[in-house]
Design a protein around this nucleic acid. Structure first.
Lengths: 155, 155
DNA sequence: CAGTATCCGGTGCGATACTG
DNA sequence: CAGTATCGCACCGGATACTG
């Protein structure tokens, strides 16, 4: 172990660290699973509940917090031939969690599951497979915006 | 709201979803903050404790779990002129959390703090600024490996 | 410095039941 | 279908004290 890599203190205080700040919102199991549902396009209270097996009261509580925090928004919508319903969808702030979502998914697939992923992230236009990674300045233009991507089940 | 984006069920069961699996490990506040310390190079029990203000018993518990899960490993090391000490450092599985770490940091900086980041991710070799993003197949070669990057405080 | 031991109090989970 | 209301028990966190 190289001594120069050892620090006695983190270089960034908790209150100045985006990671630490994000932690306050994202360190809850149910919250993360609800966000997962949102990315997969599940919007109804009862559908979310059944998918992840969360008690109603807890789901209600978490949705309220997520709306307060501006990650989800409550919308009313109507499918043809059905009555109006309410649902919860991602806001811009919520959609900005895409990279967190993908990073966690990649890590979980590799280290918690069998290494195989059930989903791919595709470019919405040319259906090219996309991969998450760190890249240099001269390639910043190659980064896809969130509006250009599409989560798809693998065949 | 487009009806075709609404799903009644998530396309991936919880048990097949890497994101959901990752959730089981990463949905704990203290665990995430300890991982943060690890990325910042803080390795000692008491240093971590002081940095994040975690009770000893809880830190002990979390470190144990993180070691069991193969995210941290306990090492003994010796700085010149000091006695040997033990510390906790990231394993390969732990270092693979880099993108989760960066994604959470980016999101937290943008949406929880003032939008300014205290740290940059640099290419270890040419000190180029790196950015996290989704990119297409033909640019996969531009993605930096974890061994090529370096977390640095902004000046 | 790196933990373990003990204890007590609060919270929040899950179950169940009720409502518009 | 989309919640609210109530409730008891379990666990977890923080405090404090002790140990190698």
């Amino acid at each position: 172990m190289r001594a120069n890599k050892i620090k006695r203190r983190a270089p960034v205080k908790l209150c100045d660290c985006g990671m630490a700040a994000a932690t306050q919102i994202l360190s809850d199991k149910w919250t993360l699973l609800i966000i997962r549902e949102a990315f997969y396009g599940v919007v109804r209270f009862d559908d979310i509940r059944k998918d992840i097996g969360i008690p109603k009261a807890v789901l209600s509580n978490r949705l309220k917090k997520l709306v307060e925090q501006g990650i989800l928004q409550k919308v009313t919508y109507q499918l043809e031939g059905e009555r109006t319903r309410s649902g919860y969808v991602l806001t811009g702030k919520g959609r900005d969690l895409t990279l967190v979502f993908v990073a966690m998914m990649d890590w979980g697939n590799k280290h918690c599951l069998d290494g195989k992923s059930a989903v791919t992230i595709l470019d919405k236009n040319d259906l090219q497979t996309l991969k998450l990674g760190l890249i240099g300045e001269k390639d910043f233009a190659q980064i896809r915006g969130l509006e250009d991507i599409h989560i798809r089940l693998k065949l």
